[in-house]
Lab assay of single mutants.
Amino acid sequence: FLTKYFNKQPYPTRREIEKLAASLWLWKSDIASHFSNKRKK
């Protein structure tokens, strides 16, 4: 799911990160680090 979202929006806003974190029961920092790691590849 996160990879699909990343393909659409590689630079999510803070609000989008909060929404993703809430819906996936993850920490915002986990979401942010996932996106930054994907951008590095």
Rank of each mutant, 00 (worst) to 15 (best):
T3E: 10
W27C: 06
A32G: 10
N7G: 03
S29T: 10
K38G: 09
K4V: 00
K40E: 04
F6M: 06
P10E: 15
I31K: 04
Y5E: 01
K8E: 01
F6R: 07
F1S: 09
L2F: 14
L2T: 01
T13C: 05
F6E: 00
R14T: 10
N37K: 14
S33A: 12
S36K: 13
I17Y: 09
K19C: 02
R39L: 13
N7K: 12
T13F: 13
W25K: 15
A22N: 11
K8Y: 02
L20R: 08
S29D: 09
A22S: 08
E16I: 12
L24V: 14
A22V: 03
K41T: 08
I17C: 11
S36A: 10
S33K: 13
K40C: 09
F35W: 09
K28N: 05
A32Q: 07
E18A: 11
T3Y: 01
E18M: 14
K41A: 04
L2Y: 05
S33P: 12
L26Q: 14
E18L: 02
D30L: 03
Q9V: 04
A21I: 07
L26R: 15
L24H: 02
S29K: 15
W25M: 12
F35L: 11
K28S: 12
R15L: 06
R39V: 06
K28H: 02
L24W: 08
N7A: 07
N37C: 12
H34A: 12
T13R: 10
I31A: 14
D30F: 05
W27F: 09
P12Q: 11
L26I: 08
D30Q: 12
W27P: 03
P10G: 08
Y11A: 14
I17L: 11
I31T: 10
P12K: 13
Y5V: 02
H34S: 11
R14G: 03
K8N: 03
R15I: 05
F35R: 06
W25D: 07
I31E: 05
E18Q: 13
K40V: 02
K8S: 00
R39F: 07
W27K: 13
E16V: 07
Y11L: 12
A22T: 09
T3W: 01
A21V: 08
Y5L: 04
N37I: 13
L20I: 12
L20K: 13
P10C: 12
K38T: 05
S29P: 15
F35M: 12
K19W: 01
K38N: 04
T13L: 14
A22D: 05
W25V: 14
N7F: 00
I31S: 07
S23D: 12
I31G: 08
T3F: 01
W27I: 06
K4M: 00
A22M: 10
E16T: 10
S33V: 04
E18I: 01
P10V: 13
T3C: 02
S36V: 04
F6D: 00
F35P: 05
R39P: 05
L2A: 01
S29I: 13
S36G: 14
R14M: 11
D30E: 08
P12T: 08
R39I: 11
S33C: 10
Q9S: 08
N7R: 07
Y5K: 06
Q9E: 10
P12A: 13
K19Y: 01
L20G: 06
K8I: 00
S23M: 03
P10M: 04
I17R: 04
T3I: 02
T3R: 08
F6L: 07
L24A: 11
K8C: 00
K19Q: 04
S33N: 04
F35K: 06
K41S: 05
A32P: 03
I31F: 06
L26K: 15
A32M: 13
N7H: 03
K40N: 02
T13D: 05
F6K: 09
K40Q: 02
K40F: 09
L26W: 13
P12W: 05
S33W: 07
K19S: 02
I17M: 15
P10T: 12
E18W: 03
S36L: 04
S33L: 07
I17S: 02
P10N: 14
S29L: 07
L24S: 02
I17D: 01
N37E: 08
I17H: 05
K8V: 00
Y11I: 13
H34Q: 11
S33H: 12
L24G: 05
L2N: 02
Y5G: 00
E18N: 06
L2E: 00
T13V: 14
L26M: 14
K40T: 12
R14F: 03
K28W: 14
R15W: 03
F6I: 05
S33E: 07
L20E: 00
A32W: 14
T13H: 08
R39E: 05
P10R: 10
S29M: 08
E16C: 14
A22L: 03
S29W: 04
S23V: 09
P12L: 05
R14P: 03
K8F: 00
S33G: 11
P12D: 14
K28C: 15
F1W: 02
K38A: 07
E16K: 14
R14L: 08
K8P: 00
L24I: 13
L2M: 07
T13G: 15
K19G: 05
K19N: 08
S29R: 09
E16W: 15
K38L: 06
W27L: 11
F1V: 03
I31D: 12
K28L: 15
Y11C: 14
F6A: 05
N37R: 10
W27A: 10
K41V: 04
Y11F: 06
S23I: 02
K28T: 15
K41M: 14
W27E: 01
A22R: 11
K19V: 02
Q9R: 13
P12S: 09
R14V: 03
Y11G: 15
H34G: 11
F1D: 01
S36Q: 10
D30G: 11
Y11K: 14
N37H: 10
H34T: 08
T13P: 12
F35A: 08
F35V: 10
S36R: 14
P10W: 13
K41W: 15
R39H: 05
T3M: 03
F35I: 06
E16M: 11
W27R: 12
H34L: 11
E16Y: 09
N7E: 10
E18C: 05
S36E: 03
E18T: 07
L20H: 04
K38D: 04
S23G: 06
P10S: 13
Q9H: 10
E18R: 13
S29F: 02
S36F: 10
K38Q: 05
E16G: 11
W25I: 11
K28Q: 06
P10Y: 07
K4L: 00
K28G: 13
Y11R: 11
K41L: 03
F6G: 02
F1N: 08
R15K: 14
H34P: 12
H34C: 13
A22E: 07
S23A: 07
F1K: 03
Y11H: 14
D30V: 04
S36W: 06
S23Y: 03
Q9N: 12
K19I: 01
W25T: 14
L24T: 06
K19F: 00
F6Q: 00
F6V: 03
W25R: 15
I17G: 07
R14Y: 08
T13Q: 09
L2Q: 01
H34E: 04
D30A: 05
R15Q: 07
S33R: 13
K19M: 02
Y5P: 02
L26T: 12
K40A: 12
S23E: 09
K4Q: 01
K28F: 15
F35G: 09
T13M: 15
N37A: 09
K41E: 09
F35H: 05
N7Y: 01
S36M: 11
K28D: 02
L20S: 05
F1T: 07
N7I: 00
T3Q: 07
L26N: 15
T13S: 10
K4D: 01
P10H: 07
R14H: 02
W27V: 10
K28I: 15
K8T: 00
T13E: 03
K41H: 06
K4C: 01
S23P: 08
L2I: 04
D30W: 12
E16S: 11
L2G: 00
L20D: 04
W25G: 13
S29G: 11
D30S: 05
K38I: 06
K8Q: 00
K41I: 04
I31R: 06
D30P: 13
L24Y: 01
I17Q: 00
K4P: 00
K41R: 09
I17F: 06
